[in-house]
């Protein structure tokens, strides 16, 4: 934490923003797993992939969302969580298209 008073509580607000993001990721994962659960092997593979991405995002968001150490901003975490979100979206597209054939 940097020295001096920070009336805006910026590090805390940023940590809470990371936790909100993790909650949103979890809801999206639950919706994807529900859509995948029709008992066929393709659905099981896609559900497994979704849960793996969720695990990666859990680790990334958890690291930023907890702790009271030095303020960390930016870095590779941001593009990585973006990549995770894009992969979730693409897995969702496959889940939707799977229902068409």
């Amino acid at each position: 934490m940097s020295t001096g008073r920070d009336p805006g509580l910026q590090p805390e607000r940023t940590r809470l923003a990371w936790r909100r993001t993790l909650l949103t990721v979890t809801v999206v994962t639950a919706l994807a797993v529900r859509l995948a659960s029709t008992g066929d092997p393709t659905g099981a593979v896609l559900a497994g992939g979704t849960v793996l991405v969720w695990g990666a995002l859990l680790v990334l968001c958890w690291r930023r969302g907890t702790g009271t150490g030095p303020t960390r901003t930016g870095g590779r975490t941001l593009p990585l969580v973006t990549a995770g979100t894009v992969v979730l979206a693409l897995l969702g597209v496959l889940l939707v298209l799977r229902g068409l054939w």
Partner: peptide, 29 residues
């Protein structure tokens, strides 16, 4: 550092917007 943190929170707010759209798509399906 507060400017970088504010920029990061803006990024996270947009990311959640994207995640909400993804969730909306999964719910629509």
């Amino acid at each position: 550092y507060r400017f970088s943190l504010a920029n990061e929170r803006t990024f996270l707010a947009w990311l959640r917007t994207g995640l909400a759209l993804v969730g909306g798509g999964l719910a629509a399906a």
